[in-house]
Amino acid sequence: MIERHDSTIVTTFVRLLVPLAQLFALYVLVHGHESPGGGFQAGVILAASYIVLALGLGREALDRRVNERLCLALASGGVLIYVLTGIVGMMLGRALLDYAALPLPVTPARARFFGILFVETGITLAVAGTLIVLFCRLGDTERE
């Protein structure tokens, strides 16, 4: 079990860092159209924020916020979002992953813009959920 860190400096810094990191993850996700970054990087940063939380404030602090079932559900949900975004186009008579076919009241270019955002969100959830659940298991020394 990862214990809470003794130093006040570390715990205070973690308290400040975690919300900022999560905000930055959101920024990386939604700003991926304009700047470097995107779903994958955002997912890793989101997972990293929870890992830092566990390392600084202890495993209990992490368990109070997320659990394995939630992370697995988020990870599968992320993949599902991606697949569904792709399949909707197919259902409406276009190619798989043709976001222009998404039933949105916007121009095809704008629909592709949102399609990209949807699948990037899916990637973020899939990556973040997978990494957190793996870290939980790896850091779990009690069960052995």
């Binding site: 304009e34 270019a109 704008r110 813009f113 990209i116 699948v119």
Partner: peptide, 17 residues
């Protein structure tokens, strides 16, 4: 076609989706 300035994002998520 995608209204996305970052070509890498457009290629990764749309053209090579």
């Amino acid at each position: 076609e995608t209204g996305t300035p970052n070509a890498v994002t457009a290629v990764v998520a749309d053209y090579r989706g």
